[in-house]
Structures are given as C-alpha cells and as structure tokens.
Design a protein around this nucleic acid. Structure first.
Lengths: 351, 351
DNA sequence: TTGAAAGCGCTACCAT
DNA sequence: ATGGTAGCGCTTTCAA
C-alpha cells in the first residue's frame, strides 16, 4: 500500500518511488545507483529498470546534505566581462564539469565588500572549494571571510597574506614583461613608461621586471610608473599624462588588456605613429592587439590554461587536502609592429 | 548535557549549537533567523547573540531540501569566452545576486549533447529556474531535457518549438540589420553579402531583414548569404569566397562579432581598403570595431541589459509562474568609416 | 510566545 | 545480498 512517493518539489520521483516500483528496499536503490558493489544482478537490473521507467534523478541537495560534499565549487571573479577572466572561467569550468563538479559563479564587479559577502554565500551553499580572482589582495573583510573557510581555496594571479591557507596559480609576469622591457631597451629606448592597476601581485611583478631590465643591461633606471585602475579611462589618462611630460617616454608598456583601448584613443588623438613615434606593448592578447594596424606587441599567456590548472589544483586538494601549493605559468613577449627603434631625441641621445 | 552540536561537515556550528547556547528551542532559532514574526524581544536577542557568537550560518542545502526552493538558478551558455555572452552573464548575475540568487554556470562549448546533460545536472541540483543561451534550437536531446523541467525557463536570443514552455528575451536583429542594409543600398550598393552562423533565430532575422531592405527600396534582391559557424575561420573563408566571385558584393554584413577577426584577415590579405573598395558591417560592438582603422560600422545592442532582463523575467516567474512571455530588446546601426559609397563597377552600374 | 517532533530525500550503518 | 533505520540541518506544523 505504499505506492505513493511524490519525491521532489516539482513532482519528480524520489528514491522511494523507485524502491516501490522495483519492489526492493530504498537502501538497495541507493546502493545500486551509487554504483556500490554487493548487489545481485537481478536486483541491480530491477532497480535500474524502475529508475529509468520513472525518469528518476537523485536530489543533489539531499545527497549533499547526507554526504557532506556537494561536488560544487564557488568561483569568485571581479569582472566576468573581461575577456581574460572569461577565458579563465571557461578553462576552469571545462575541467570541473568533466570531473562532475558544478560551478557557482559570482561576479563582484571589483567591489571588495561584495567579494566577502559572496564568499559567505558560497560557504552557506556548502561548496567543496573556492577559486578566487579578486580585485584586491588586502581587503580586510575578504580576508576575514577567507579565514573562516574550511575548504580548499585556489587563488589566481593574486597573493594573500600567509595566514590564508590558499593555493596559488600564478602567471609569471616577470618573465614576459622582462623580455619586453629588454627588447625595448635594446632597441634604443632609454626612458620607459609603465601603466599598471592597483597594487596586486601582477602589478608588483611588472614593476620589478621593468626595473630589473634596466639593471640587467647596465642602464640607469629611467621608468615612469602610472598607477590607477585597469580601465580604458585610466589607459587614456595615463598616456595623455606621460606623453605630455617635458621628457616623455619613447616606449610604454600597458599592464592590462583593458588599458589598450584608452591608450589607443590617446595615441590616435595625438596622431602618433606606433612603432615610429612611440613604441607600445600591451598585456594579454585580445583581437584588438592582432588586428590593430600596426599590430600591438603583447605579453601573452594562456588564460584558459590558467583556469584549468586552478581547477585541477582545487580538485586535487578536495580529494586529498595537502600542503599549500603554488603553480607558476609562463608569460612571453610577442614582438609586433607597434615596437620600433627609439626615435633620436634628447631623451634617447646616446650618453 | 546537550552541549555538543557539531554542525556542518567542516565543523561549522549548526542550528542546534545556536539553540543550545541561547538556551532556547531549535524552532525558535529558525524562526528568529528567518525573520518570522512572533518572537519576544528577549528571545530574539538571545538567539541573535548566540548566532553571532558562534558565527552561525545556515546550511543552504538543508534549507533547500526542506523549503523545496534553493534560490539558485542554472545558466547554460555555449561559449563564455565570447565577450557578448560574458556580458550577458554579467548582466544577469548582478540582478540575480541582488535578489539573493546564486548562479550555476555551465559552458557547453557549443556541443548540444553537453547542453542536454548539463540541464539534467542543474535540475538534480534543484535550481529554481534556468536561463539558456544554447548554440542550437533543434537539438532533440536538449529539447527532451527541457520538457522535463518543471521550473521556469528563460531563453535568450533563441527560439524553441512551442511545446517547450519557455519565456524569451530576444534581440530585435531585424531592426538593426535592416537599418544597416538600407544604408548600404542607399549608398549605391546593389549586391550585398551576409555571413551568418547556424540556423538560429538571429540568423533567420538577419536574412529576412536584408531581403526586406531590398524590397523596401524597390530594388531587386541581390544578396549572397554565406552560412557556417560564427568563428573567425568562417569569417575569413566566407570573405575569401565572396570576394573571389566573378561579381563580388560591394558591401558585406557579418552576423556575429567573432567573424570580424577572420574577415579582417581576408580584407588585409587582399589589400582592400574598407569603406572604399569594400564596405563592411559587423554585429555587436567589441573594442576591435571601434579601434580598427577605419572603424567598423556595427549593429549594436546592450548585452548586459539582455542578461538583466532575462534574469528579471526569470525571477518574476519563479515568484509567480505565469503565461509564456517574450521580451524584445532593440538593436541599432552605428555607421562608421568602414562603410562608404559603392565603387562604380559593373555590379553597381546604374540600371 | 515557545518548543517537540515530523520529515524533506538521501546515505550508511547494522542487522538479518 | 538485502533492507530497516538513524540522521544530515533545517522548516513547519501542532500543542502546550
């Protein structure tokens, strides 16, 4: 007489319905469908048939509650609209979904307080791990939220204080920017500009790489660093300001793909010819870099891989928690026509 | 003696712990924290204090199981890497998160079988609704999966058979493409090219708009349609092929932002001057459109709004299920230098 | 106003 | 090999 078993909210059959139809115990249904051994072929078949007949699908909420694991992860990004970040998310998602994990995506829009709040929400939802790509590294609320997280955390391209037990997947910006800077110096440029965003790891690495490039070639450090946000507006303002100086840099490196649009506005407005009047290097290859004329030299990296490795690292530590790990991924300089020899001006006069 | 109450997997306190600390019943804790009326100020205070002291956070899994609602939605996209789609997701996410909903994002990579599978997964996870932006409109497995969905579904820029009870948020491609086509015809072009992707609603609307443009100006329809995928490769192939014809079109419209890169390759390879030798219109404004020289005329739309409206529509129908609804959002033509008068050739000879 | 208890759908333990 | 049952953390009657 137990032929009723509504199941889910929306009227989907539950495990009881399957058990009833198959004429077996509910525990057996669970065992069979979870692929656990120790069921006779007959029983297995009956369960499978009943499940198929009913279109039964386990309720992941109940499973998660019971198993204390949801096979879901939280992904916190500052701006999904940034093509670089979208690619990172894409790379991670494909690894995770293949592993049977779902991704809870949240976009903080670069507002730190939102980061913190979203981390709380994700923990309430019992995600098994977290991947973070936040705007800042030192937001107190975010760090506090992170300290309460008991699950593995993987941070991409950012660096948190040591007391945050996170794993890292970092781009080796030093390498690519260093190569770019050395190329510029070897082309005769003596005064370089660098436009960067907030004070996060990539910014620090880029500055260091630029400075070291001067050192490594035995040149006097002559670097103008313009800090701001990684927005087109900042790109434009930074270039306007640098180029308006009495002794403007003859080559400029942009530390973020969103800066390029603004930078190009400024360049066009002034009627400068890239590769001739000014050499320009951008970061992170976007279509605009390749199809601009002249093409924009770029410090490249594989964004999708960044996400994929982050996902792998996270999965590994969800499986078997372990010591903090750091993965470093390469960046490299791709020379294009936007870089040319330094114009012979006072700033680049042989000294 | 019931001072133990482990709570969560990762040792987070549960509702029992709060009840114990506050010296009240577990039901009261639930009532207070859910903001339900009918608790004395004292009790309320004690519960709040205890919850704060313990850093208590409700387990969303248990809540969802009990309430039969998760305040989460599933978002299925074909390619998160496409900046247009990323913006749509961003627009939706911000509306949803403000409403307290989380987003389960899955990326099918354009493989229909994956769409179907992911929809199943999302339903297992008991999402309260679905937003879809699939590659195809007629994949049998996807449609079958959708028919089993009991929650509201919002489809963006696609059109499913009537038996799928979905709501729609559609871009009015007809309008923008029509304006572009009329502009081209009025500039003297008589033979137009159109590059489109698979047979989905935007593709059909674009073709129809182009054809109608000829009609509305009393001109003979002279349109070459090139179908393929919305990839850069297809963009290049399509242009190569069209331009190699004995009587090539003097103006070409690209029905997707990813086509542009390939199209530009072809144009550059042939040494054509856009706006002079060939007029070109693209769809969906990306930085490349604006910063290419000459700038590429574009049929624009507000991607973020598309996502936001989809989210609003979904939330409305989660709150109060209702009749199928369709929202239409505008597109418009932005003229830029890539469009010029038709060259005087046999193809455009006055007739 | 408050709390005990049932039960959401499932897994895992423990009998049988 | 199989199934009954406890219980995951919570909400929601229902009684007190």
């Amino acid at each position: 007489m137990s032929e009723n078993a509504p199941g889910d909210p929306k009227g989907r059959p539950g495990i009881k319905a399957v058990a009833a139809l198959a004429g077996v115990g509910i525990a057996s249904v669970s065992r069979v469908l979870s692929g656990q051994p120790g069921s006779s072929p007959q029983l297995t078949q009956r369960v499978l048939d009943a499940a198929r007949a009913l279109g039964y699908t386990p309720n992941a909420l109940a499973q998660g509650l019971r198993r204390r694991a949801t096979r879901s992860i939280g992904f916190v990004v500052s701006d999904i609209t940034n093509p670089l970040i979208a690619s990172i998310v894409g790379g991670a998602e494909s690894v995770l979904s293949v592993a049977g994990f779902s991704v809870l995506l949240t976009n903080s829009g670069g507002v730190p307080s939102i980061d913190a709040e979203r981390i709380e929400v994700l923990m309430q939802r019992q995600v098994d791990g977290l991947i973070l790509l936040p705007a800042l590294e030192d937001d107190a609320a975010t760090l506090a939220a992170l300290r309460n997280v008991k699950s593995p955390i993987v941070v991409i391209d950012r660096s948190f204080p040591d007391d945050i037990p996170a794993h890292y997947v970092l781009s080796d910006h030093y390498q690519g920017i260093g190569a770019a800077a050395r190329h510029l110096l070897e082309s005769g440029h003596r005064r370089l500009g660098l436009v960067v965003g907030r004070d996060v790891r990539p910014t620090r690495e880029r500055i260091r790489a630029m400075q070291d490039a001067f050192d490594s070639l035995g040149l006097k450090r002559d670097l103008i660093v313009h800090r701001g946000t990684l927005s087109p507006e900042h790109g434009k303002a930074a270039l306007e300001e640098m180029l308006a100086q009495k002794r403007p840099p003859s080559a400029i490196v942009l530390g973020g793909n969103q800066l390029l649009e603004g930078a190009l506005s400024a360049v066009h407005r002034r009627g400068l010819k890239l590769g001739v009047d000014l050499s320009l290097v951008s970061c992170d290859d976007v279509p605009l870099c390749r199809f601009h004329q002249p093409a924009i030299a770029t410090v490249m990296r594989d964004a999708s891989l960044l996400g994929a490795r982050a996902a792998q690292l996270l999965l590994a530590h969800i499986e078997a928690p372990g010591e903090p790990e750091t993965v470093s991924l390469p960046t490299w300089f791709e020379l294009r026509e936007s870089c040319g020899a330094a114009p012979v001006t006072s700033a680049n006069a042989s000294g």
